[in-house]
Amino acid sequence: MSQELYTNLAIFVLSLLVGFEVMSKIPATLQTPMMSGANAIHGVVVVGAFAIAAEANNWYFYLLAFLAAFFSAVNVSGGYTVTDRMLGMFNRPKDKPADSKKEGDQ
């Protein structure tokens, strides 16, 4: 194995450890907003999928590029969906007109 592979592997392992430590320190009430924002930011993975597709020369690279693009698109759209639903919880309820009657009222 080359020195570059060891360096990249060390960076990957350190990023996993730092990410775990950071995530464990965040209170549970902030997990959803932070993760929904992070999912939306992960649109960078879409660019990575395009880079894989540009360099593809075998069927398994094409398959890898397709799977990367599909899962990253699902991740990004899910992040936006969760964020939209979460922000919808902060909207004030709409006032109902005073002259409308509820069902069963006479």
Rank of each mutant, 00 (worst) to 15 (best):
L64K: 11
T81E: 08
V76K: 03
T81R: 07
F66L: 12
L30N: 12
I26P: 03
L67K: 13
S15H: 03
S24N: 12
N58E: 14
G48L: 13
L64D: 13
A49N: 03
F61W: 06
G43P: 04
S77P: 07
N58K: 10
F66K: 03
L64V: 15
A53I: 04
I52R: 06
I52M: 09
A53D: 04
A65T: 14
A56S: 14
P27G: 06
F71H: 11
N57E: 09
S15L: 11
I52Q: 10
S72L: 07
S77W: 15
G37W: 13
I26F: 03
P33W: 01
G78P: 02
V18P: 01
A68Q: 05
A68L: 04
L64S: 15
P27L: 05
T29G: 02
Q31E: 07
S24D: 10
L30P: 00
A54S: 11
A68I: 01
F70M: 09
F50K: 04
I41G: 06
V22W: 01
P27E: 14
V44R: 00
V82P: 00
S72R: 01
L17F: 15
A65C: 09
Y62G: 14
A28D: 15
Q31W: 11
F50V: 15
P33H: 05
A73N: 09
A56V: 08
